[in-house]
Write a protein that binds this DNA or RNA. Structure first.
Lengths: 245, 245
DNA sequence: CGGCTAGTTGACAAGCGTCAAGAATTGTGG
DNA sequence: CCACAATTCTTGACGCTTGTCAACTAGCCG
């Protein structure tokens, strides 16, 4: 058996240049020869099993991660052990930016399903970015998009009605799935109701009741983690602040 | 009268190298000669009057700003005109990062008092950062700190009790004033109760009641916008999640 | 002095958290 | 492949916090 070709294929498939997410990720808008330079500093990591930590609060942050397959949650922990989900990370989205400010992670990152990540050492990224003009710009762009998702999250939290929060949440997920080229009107939630509740500042019972209410109103169809958005119009209206009664 | 020396003094005072905020801002950790290169691309702007907009939703973002004197709020607007304060910006803190993702501002920035800002054109900043190794790192650091404040905000919003939100808010402000070398235990709020309410997801009446309650409990002393933190210990406990009854 | 905005306080009710029980789904070992 | 356990999720009843509405007070500036 010839193993060499298999290794080559594997390597090729794992290159930034051949990655299906490259348009969303750091290589976007960078010429091929420069992508290769970026590629050399990116480490492809072993799969992360469901429930496994990618990093923990307090650990130093010499690198940032990109979800490659599967999704993650980031969880901030109070001193008393109370936890709060502060972000979900779908493929192509950055993980670990929370440590940029003071060099230590402020949250745990946990895989919601069996997943893979790319690992980018910050020091080497800086080195390449100094030489590749587009990379620095693209880095700020993906960081900016990450901040945009955080702002979306904040806008969910600012809604007083649980139903509105849940609708905004579903809308946001829908958009992100569509960005990934997937169906934004029907998808499987990668997280539990508990995670959703923590993320939205609601208890699990309220999340459950909201799903039921939205289904009764014909806005969505839910069965377990499978969700279908039936009245995207009504959801979009809620997103833009028009009251829904 | 010799006007020339006056101009020189003015210019000197306004340089990054002589700025009292330089340790918190982009020049931190950069050697003098490189600070000068940064300095050349930074534009010192006219004062921004209280209530005046620094930028508006939808406007393109070729630059980022640093509050220099006075503070700002950023306000996200739903389509129906409902507004939500998503951030406060004290001197030394960045404003305008919300446009990094898609090139358009997602919020209005409004001066809370008569203020001044420094204006940094992004394109030229990239140019300098590519040549000054420390600047790129420092840029990510200040962006990271900005994200850290956003995370603090999220943690306020995730508290269920209005009192906890207000205490976390006061604690956060206190820390930020101390970072500026000011007294963190007694300060003047630059924003209205309405702004605080919007920022914390509470109505103005609830904010008012929380202030009164905290004062009755001897945790703080409030008189209008003047606040004094009396039991920092109790506030710190609330921050770390220990219940306060 | 008078008008305006900002802030405070009270009464009431609605929405959500809490507690409790049960149903549905997933995982595991025989 | 089934049975059983462990999660995960749903539903109901009840009470409390907070939003809503309203009236009033305190500052501020012309």
């Amino acid at each position: 058996m010839e193993t060499a070709p298999v290794v080559d294929l594997e390597t090729l498939r794992r290159n930034c240049a051949n990655c299906s997410l490259r348009q969303l990720c750091l290589p976007a808008g960078i010429v091929a020869s420069d992508v290769e330079r970026l590629d050399r500093v990116v480490k492809r990591r072993k799969p992360v099993a469901r429930g496994e930590h990618l990093f923990r609060v307090g650990s130093g942050a010499a690198r940032i991660y990109v979800a490659r397959e599967g999704s993650f949650k980031t969880v901030a922990c109070s001193a008393d052990g109370e936890q709060q989900v502060i972000g979900f990370h779908l493929p192509g989205e950055l993980i670990g930016l929370d440590a940029l400010g003071h060099g230590q992670h402020r949250c745990d990152a946990i895989a919601l399903e069996n997943a893979r990540v790319c690992e980018v050492p910050l020091e080497e990224l800086h080195h390449v970015a100094a030489q590749v003009p587009g990379l620095q710009r693209q880095l700020l762009r993906v960081i900016g998009r990450s901040m945009g998702r955080d702002q979306d999250h904040l806008e969910m939290m600012s809604r007083r009605q649980a139903n509105d929060r849940v609708m905004l949440f579903l809308h946001s997920l829908s958009q992100r799935f569509e960005t990934l080229g997937q169906d934004g009107s029907a998808f499987a939630l990668p997280m539990t109701r508990e995670d959703i509740g923590s993320y939205l500042g609601l208890v699990i019972e309220t999340v459950s009741r909201s799903f039921t209410k939205l289904q009764d109103d014909g806005v969505i169809a839910v069965r377990g983690r499978q969700v279908r958005l039936l009245q995207q119009r009504q959801i979009a209206d809620a997103v833009h602040g028009h009251a829904l009664h």
